[in-house]
Every structure is written in structure tokens, then in C-alpha cells.
Design a binder for these strands. Structure first.
Lengths: 211, 211
DNA sequence: AGCAAAATCACCCGATCGGGCATTGATCGC
DNA sequence: GCGATCAATGCCCGATCGGGTGATTTTGCT
């Protein structure tokens, strides 16, 4: 038994990059009050590991194959409302951040963060605080007034992105073309887009899409 | 002096994620025939480090702030034609891969690769071979027939992505609107896009943009 | 139950787009 | 030199888009 202390923070790591998991692991093991108790390479595995390990905190990446990070956070948070979850991902994007936080995440960190920032975030979350990387916080602030996109609007925008005409989108979603136009008009207003193409670009940059 | 062997592979790591650099470092240091001789957090630093360290091989990420990986590869390869460069990045995209390889990279690996695959790639490159991750190889094969986009076409497409109308693009590029339309028509044919929006999406997915 | 918000559908119209077809220079390789 | 290739340009025209305005229905929340 290597881990002697009973009060050490038990951490679960979920990331589809093996090398990144190693990097996180060495950072945590370098701290005397933390232990990596498990790792997962995708969202489905993260959920299973969380169920069997009941870690004090889970470090989860958003970009993962199959069940992605957001879905994993949702599932874990629904089953374990007291779960401490930290998002550690490559990309900002206010929409992504808001979704992660509302789905149950307690912190949103970027992979550009240093070991110390990661460790600090873990300790803060363990103390019941919420943490958002400063780069991300500014982004959220600058989009504070703007509204989110509804599921319906995202469906329309995804079809727009893949080159479908309004009429075709209407057929696919089983609504009239005018409805699609109304939806799209609303989307462009919300995003401040000049046209449909710009709307797709802005939505991508703000993290409305799962890429 | 820790590094006793004179025949060990000297590696430079360039990645803007500190934790990822750590992960790569532990993987390399776990191998008795490799040494991490330097690290860089962006392309500009990578160039400087390469100049002063002359590593046997450089592991470079493409997504980096300021001078990105492609520019760094270009600069290093131009100054040191014998340089061994391995791209280690998160994303595939045949266009990105082709650009990296033509700019001087000797290998293209994804961060989903295991330590063993990374170490193997380094040894292969040291033996003069080229390495391309299998996931990426298949992608290139499936787009083997399709042509690349020219700089001019990329300029047009970037403006399309940001919501500019053909007329405005024409003014910005100081050409006639008909020229822009001709260029765009050609772009859509090359990419097999249904409309301008689809063209932007396909270009993004295939790595024509620096995102 | 009752109000607010979102979603749906409808019509008009000017601007923009995308396809087809043809012409001019300029650069490049043979 | 000369054909080839490509960027640039022009015109026509039907399809699509984006803006404005208004009405009805559904949904959610109090």
C-alpha cells in the first residue's frame, strides 16, 4: 500500500490522450496531498470509473470519442449530485463553458494552465469554490448579454453548416421553409452574424458545436 | 552531468500545454536511449531552442500561439535541412498533414498515440524513415485525388467564413466580383461542397484553416 | 389557470448566390 | 516561339437568401 494518508484527495483523470493523462498524473503525484486513483480514455469509461471509485474530484476533458465530456459530466452529476468535477480542456468558448457549468462542472480550466494552477483549482473545488480560468472568464463576460442557442436552433445551424438549403432543412425537420427562415434569422440576430456562413463560424468559435 | 551516454537521442519538445510537455518528457525519460534537452511553449521559442540546442529530433505541436507549428517547422527546416521533425498534434485533416510534411516534417502523429507509438516514431525518424499515424494515412488516401487550395482560394474562403459577400470580398482583394465568384466556384468544386457555407465547413474539417 | 417565451407558419421583395459560357492576359514548360 | 495552364473578367438567369411584418400554436413556469 503506497498511499498511506487517508485524507489525500482522490482524483480521477478522463482524457483521450494517454500522454496528457501521464502529464496530469505526474503533476498530481508531485503533490503530497493528492492521489490519482483512476484514469479513463473516454466518457463512458469515466462514468464507470466514477461509479466504482467515488473519487473526490474528477478531471475531465471535453473532447473525447464516443460519449464526450459534457455527456459524462451530465451523467455523473445526475447520479452523484455532490461530485466535484473539473473540466480540463484545450478550448475556451463561452457556450461550451456555460454548458459544462450548468451540467454540473465545478471548474473550467484550459490545458495551457500550469501544474500549480491545476493543483490550485483542485484544492479550491475541494473547498467548495467554483473556478473558471481567467481567459475564459473574460470571454464569458464579453458575451454575458448574448443569449444561448436552443436545441432547435442548433439543429438548424448544424444542417446549415453541412450545406443544406432552407427548403431541405425544412423537409428534414418536418417544418415549413418559413419556419426555418425564422429560426435562422433569430440565430443570426443572437450571434450578430452577417449571413448563414458567418453564423456557423461564430457558433464554432464560441463552442456551440461539439468540435 | 546526468546524461552519460553520448549516443542518446536528444529531443526538443514544443507544445503550449505545460502538462502535455510533462507527459511527453516522462515518456521519453522512461526510455534509456532518449533525453529531453529542451522545451518550448510556442513556435518562436521552438526556433530559438532548435538553433541553440541542435536536437536530434524535435516534437512539435501545430496549435501554438503566435508563431504556430507550421511556421516553426518551415523556419527550422529551411535553416537546418537535415533536421528531424515530428508533428505531435490533436487533429488530423489531410490538408494540415500534407502541408506539414511538405514544409519539412518527417512524421505526423496524433496525441491519441501511446508512449510506445511516440517512441517508435522517434526511432523510425532517426533511422531516416517517415511516419504517418494510421488514422491520418487513411484520411490522406481518401482525399488523394482531390487538389489542395491555393493561397488565393484560402484568402477568399477565409473572407467567406467571416460573412463577407462576394462584392465585399472583391473590394477587399481588389478584384472584380466575377473573379471572386469564379474562385469560389472552383473552391466548391474542389471540395465537393454544396454551397459556400458547406465549403467553409469542409475546409475546416480537412485542416485548411489554422484552427 | 394564466402569462411569457419559444416555435410554427405565411407573404412580399430586393439582394445575393450559384451555374453556364466565353474572353483576355500572364506565366510556365517544352 | 507555342501550346498549356491559370487568374481575372464579363454577362445571363433562375434559385436561394435575408429583411420586414404579422398571426397562431405550443410549451414552460408560476
Amino acid at each position: 500500500m503506497v498511499t498511506g494518508g487517508a485524507d489525500r484527495i482522490r482524483v480521477l483523470i478522463a482524457d483521450d490522450h494517454p500522454i496528457m493523462r501521464d502529464g496530469i498524473a505526474v503533476a498530481l503525484e508531485s503533490s503530497p496531498d493528492m492521489d490519482v486513483v483512476g484514469q479513463a480514455a473516454d466518457g463512458a469509461e469515466a462514468i464507470v470509473r466514477f461509479r466504482e471509485l467515488h473519487p473526490d474530484v474528477a478531471l475531465i476533458d471535453l473532447q473525447m470519442p464516443g460519449v464526450d465530456g459534457l455527456q459524462a459530466i451530465h451523467a455523473i452529476s445526475a447520479e452523484f449530485p455532490q461530485a466535484r468535477i473539473i473540466v480540463l480542456t484545450s478550448y475556451p468558448g463561452d457556450a461550451r463553458v456555460k454548458r459544462a457549468l450548468t451540467l454540473g462542472a465545478n471548474a473550467y480550466m484550459l490545458k495551457t494552465a500550469t501544474r500549480e494552477e491545476i493543483l490550485g483549482a483542485i484544492r479550491s473545488v475541494m473547498n467548495g469554490r467554483r473556478v473558471v480560468a481567467t481567459e475564459v472568464a473574460g470571454e464569458i463576460a464579453s458575451h454575458a448579454w448574448s443569449e444561448m442557442l436552443s436545441d432547435r436552433e442548433l439543429s438548424v445551424l448544424r444542417l446549415v453548416a453541412t450545406g443544406h438549403t432552407n427548403k431541405r432543412i425544412a423537409d428534414i425537420l418536418c417544418v415549413s421553409e418559413d419556419t426555418v427562415k425564422a429560426r435562422l434569422k433569430n440565430i443570426m440576430t443572437k450571434l450578430g452574424a452577417l449571413d448563414r456562413t458567418h453564423a456557423v463560424t461564430l457558433a464554432r468559435n464560441r463552442g456551440f458545436f461539439d468540435g
